[in-house]
Design a protein around this nucleic acid. Structure first.
Lengths: 219, 219
DNA sequence: CCTACCGATCGGTAGG
DNA sequence: CCTACCGATCGGTAGG
């Protein structure tokens, strides 16, 4: 899809050298895009970071935008896989307080660590240039996680452990009580990406957010 | 500060032509930066939008970055003025449900309309290039509003109308229940900026968020 | 894989 | 003489 058709034969096999180059380039591009932004990153930067020539980059990807698209697809795939697993364990627990506290911690750990926050910065910052990228990511990543949370909360509601009238709204309340303040601040504060103290505070906030949710939605 | 010292005499008077040019340039720069981003905007674009020559832009501002800084200062000043007034009326009310619902609506209206969301996109997107701009904005705008909300909630707590142990945490819970989901989505969805249906849904969400807060923090 | 190069455009500055 | 402003163009770099 993202590469020239000629690099793949009719049976779908790709030259292993291209496969290897693609992986190197995508990893390098993700690293550099997330750090310096889309316009702040030149294709030369990516090629140098990947240890390939610029010409190789253009052999594997049509242009800079398609490379961005490939990075986004990869991130969305990861997020979708994650959202399927999310909350699966929580739904089996009988102690709703324990389950929701664990769910809040899990949410904080997954959203506030790794590349999620840098990717959000990138997509939000480029939303005017690539509105469809930002919108698609939102629908296929955070919105899916929200749906998974809503499903778990509906389960608790049906078992009489919580009072849930509107699972989608309740999921939003749960998620934003748990990680809303931490996430919002993280978007503006680059240093927090690697700061251990920030991570600790985020987990504590998640726990206290879950506690507030439990008070608001107690059966 | 931003202009050459020679344009202002010892008494602080500035050539009225410069004052007028500065206003034209800043309004144009705010419009274009917020729409197309910092690197996506050329100084020529700004000059054209302001109806002045590029040379005039460089007579008033040292460079493109200082112009960005001036826009940011203006936005921060507006936000600080707003945060001082915020919640002043709420603290006088006796009916806490009415007061908090009004506060939530007020928060939604002020954050989700106007230039706040586009400015957030700009600062978040440029956080890697201008980390101090993003951090300063956060501390002087959203963080101040949060402090104002915390003050109002503390007042309700002291009057026995709410159970508030930690006003700062409670303020975060209130704010993110009220506008967290709407704000997060707005950052990714450019069309929502001018969409009336989105605004209506945001107000409804704010009201239901305030209701959840009241359940969690009832005395 | 490297150097060289293109058409276009950038931020910033020259002379008048 | 000064400053503000103009049309034109600088050196350097972007994506391709």
């Amino acid at each position: 899809m993202n590469s020239a058709p000629s690099t793949t034969d009719r049976a779908g096999y790709e030259d292993p050298r291209i496969t290897r180059s693609r992986a190197l380039i995508m990893e390098a591009a993700a690293r550099v895009f997330l750090q310096r932004g889309y316009p702040g990153t030149s294709v030369d930067d990516i090629a140098a970071e990947a240890g390939v020539s610029k010409r190789t980059v253009y052999n594997v990807f049509d242009d800079k935008e398609q490379l961005f698209r490939a990075i986004l697809d990869q991130a969305i795939t990861t997020a979708e896989r994650y959202s399927l697993a999310f909350g699966a364990t929580a739904a089996e627990t009988v102690d709703v307080e324990v389950a929701l506290t664990a769910l809040a911690r899990e949410l904080a750990a997954s959203v506030l660590s790794g590349r999620v926050v840098p990717l959000r910065r990138l997509l939000i910052g480029e939303a005017s240039r690539f509105p469809e990228f930002a919108a698609e990511y939102y629908e296929r990543a955070p919105a899916r996680v929200m749906t998974a949370v809503a499903g778990a909360l509906r389960g608790f509601g049906e078992r009489g452990l919580l009072r849930i009238d509107d699972p989608e709204l309740a999921a939003e309340h749960f998620a934003f009580l748990a990680i809303g303040p931490s996430l919002d601040r993280a978007l503006f504060d680059l240093e927090s990406d690697t700061d251990a103290a920030t991570a600790t505070r985020a987990v504590e906030r998640a726990e206290r957010g879950a506690a507030a949710f439990l008070r608001a939605y107690a059966a």
